Computed example of a mutant assay.
Amino acid sequence: MPISTAIFWPVIAQVALIHLIYFLMLKRRSGAMRAGTAKASDFWVPAIEPEPSATVARSLINQFELPMLFFLVCTLLYVTAGVNHVVVAVAWLFVLSRYAHAWVHVTSNRLRIRQRLFVSGFVLNFSLWLLFAIHLLGI
């Protein structure tokens, strides 16, 4: 596999995480309705959604925030031939941080751990953008 296209494997893994969270949200919402703790109209307004599915819904929203910058920088690095082994390694670390963040979010939801994982993902994402800028400068 050429290193230039290797950047798409972490992208695919991030997209897989988004799909996993969608499935988990569907499972938790269906479970809440079957258990009688929620009705379909409860999901119209997130403020009244049961906590088990509300945390998953919030986790899903998180996957359309910082990861969007990840998708963009990966695409830009590919288009400008800026993909190298360091870039791919940082991309994988970012995705691993997102999986860990999502896991904590939909299980224990411990804010202190979640925050550390978010910050690590943020720094890794910033690093990808910095690597992209350095590539553009030809350094």
Score class of each variant (00 low, 15 high):
residue 123 V to G: 03
residue 36 G to H: 03
residue 24 L to M: 13
residue 39 K to G: 08
residue 74 C to D: 01
residue 71 F to Y: 07
residue 71 F to G: 03
residue 127 S to C: 07
residue 76 L to D: 00
residue 126 F to R: 01
residue 124 L to W: 00
residue 89 A to P: 04
residue 29 R to M: 04
residue 73 V to Q: 03
residue 133 A to F: 15
residue 60 L to R: 12
residue 42 D to L: 04
residue 119 V to L: 14
residue 102 A to M: 12
residue 63 Q to K: 05
residue 109 N to L: 02
residue 84 N to F: 12
residue 109 N to H: 03
residue 104 V to E: 14
residue 111 L to R: 08
residue 55 T to G: 05
residue 34 R to N: 11
residue 106 V to K: 07
residue 104 V to M: 14
residue 112 R to E: 12
residue 29 R to K: 15
residue 23 F to R: 14
residue 135 H to Q: 01
residue 80 T to G: 03
residue 96 L to K: 06
residue 1 M to Q: 11
residue 102 A to N: 02
residue 102 A to G: 03
residue 52 P to N: 14
residue 63 Q to C: 12
residue 70 F to Y: 02
residue 81 A to Y: 09
residue 28 R to G: 12
residue 39 K to Y: 07
residue 10 P to Q: 00
residue 44 W to C: 08
residue 31 G to L: 13
residue 88 V to H: 04
residue 25 M to S: 12
residue 10 P to A: 05
residue 51 E to K: 10
residue 88 V to P: 13
residue 88 V to I: 08
residue 12 I to R: 01
residue 17 L to V: 07
residue 40 A to R: 11
residue 60 L to Y: 13
residue 53 S to E: 08
residue 72 L to V: 06
residue 85 H to F: 10
residue 11 V to W: 01
residue 97 S to I: 10
residue 80 T to F: 07
residue 58 R to F: 08
residue 1 M to P: 10
residue 131 L to D: 04
residue 55 T to M: 13
residue 14 Q to A: 05
residue 15 V to F: 00
residue 26 L to S: 15
residue 78 Y to R: 03
residue 109 N to F: 06
residue 136 L to C: 11
residue 54 A to R: 12
residue 86 V to M: 12
residue 86 V to F: 11
residue 86 V to D: 11
residue 11 V to D: 03
residue 133 A to Y: 12
residue 58 R to W: 08
residue 75 T to M: 13
residue 39 K to E: 10
residue 2 P to Q: 09
residue 65 E to K: 01
residue 61 I to Q: 09
residue 59 S to H: 07
residue 90 V to W: 02
residue 37 T to I: 15
residue 25 M to W: 13
residue 135 H to C: 02
residue 91 A to D: 09
residue 38 A to C: 07
residue 47 A to K: 13
residue 69 L to N: 03
residue 102 A to E: 01
residue 43 F to C: 01
residue 62 N to E: 10
residue 76 L to I: 05
residue 88 V to M: 06
residue 22 Y to P: 06
residue 103 W to K: 07
residue 5 T to C: 02
residue 41 S to V: 13
residue 67 P to V: 01
residue 17 L to C: 05
residue 113 I to P: 09
residue 31 G to R: 13
residue 79 V to D: 09
residue 90 V to I: 15
residue 127 S to M: 13
residue 2 P to D: 02
residue 107 T to L: 04
residue 70 F to I: 00
residue 71 F to W: 09
residue 123 V to I: 15
residue 24 L to P: 11
residue 14 Q to L: 06
residue 72 L to G: 10
residue 19 H to R: 10
residue 129 W to H: 03
residue 37 T to G: 08
residue 83 V to F: 13
residue 136 L to Q: 14
residue 47 A to N: 06
residue 43 F to S: 01
residue 43 F to H: 00
residue 99 Y to K: 06
residue 131 L to R: 07
residue 10 P to E: 01
residue 131 L to N: 00
residue 33 M to T: 08
residue 17 L to K: 03
residue 99 Y to I: 10
residue 66 L to T: 02
residue 122 F to D: 00
residue 84 N to H: 05
residue 107 T to A: 00
residue 108 S to K: 05
residue 91 A to K: 10
residue 110 R to W: 10
residue 59 S to Y: 04
residue 101 H to Y: 05
residue 125 N to Q: 15
residue 57 A to S: 13
residue 84 N to W: 14
